[in-house]
């Protein structure tokens, strides 16, 4: 089977990056997965190296609460990229939800076109499968 998606995982926790990556690999051996612990680095790579060669859509799994550059800031900066770059990506928020992180912030992030869905940590096999189904049903335009 051809490669269906490529993934970018952005999470400041090394363990979370590892877990997410392994879950993805378990679901499909042929995925291309990049992990970043610093959202700024991820943004630079996306900016300098858009998916020109591959026509495979890329899913960004993004943590929200990160030092240095938060997930919110990342989405803001991502939206400033050119449409040719953006059209190849979709962002899925992967974060812990708590009554503390104000729900308003979370909802606001869905105003950005690139943000498609949200998954609550911890990640499980079931959550990942339903996420992949969701993505297949709502392909990038």
């Amino acid at each position: 089977m051809d490669i269906e998606f490529s993934f970018i995982v952005i999470d400041d926790s090394e363990l979370d990056c590892f877990v997410t990556q392994k879950f993805l690999e378990l679901s499909d051996k042929n995925l291309v997965i990049k992990t970043f612990q610093n959202a700024q680095h991820a943004l630079e790579v996306i900016h300098e190296n858009p998916n020109r060669n591959s026509l495979v859509p890329t899913i960004i799994l993004l943590d929200l609460q990160m030092p240095f550059m938060s997930g919110f800031k990342f989405v803001e900066e991502f939206e400033k990229l050119s449409p040719e770059i953006k059209e190849n990506y979709m962002i899925i928020i992967l974060t812990i939800l708590s009554p503390v992180s104000s729900p308003g912030d979370i909802y606001r992030i869905f105003n950005y076109g690139a943000v498609k869905s949200i998954v609550e940590k911890p990640l499980t096999k079931e959550k990942l499968l339903s996420l992949l189904n969701h993505v297949r049903l709502n392909p990038l335009t």
Binding site: S13, L15, D16, F18, V19, T20, K22, F23, L26, Q65, I96, S98, V100, S101, K121, P122, L123, T124, K125
Partner: peptide, 30 residues
């Protein structure tokens, strides 16, 4: 929420993942 629940949810995720992993080296890394 970030500094206590963050690591906890990471560890929980790892435990979930552990059920799917057979490779001892990967397990040790985790």
């Amino acid at each position: 929420s970030h500094d206590i629940r963050g690591p906890l949810s990471g560890i929980l995720g790892a435990i979930n993942l552990a059920r799917e992993i057979d490779d001892i080296e990967e397990m040790k890394e985790m």
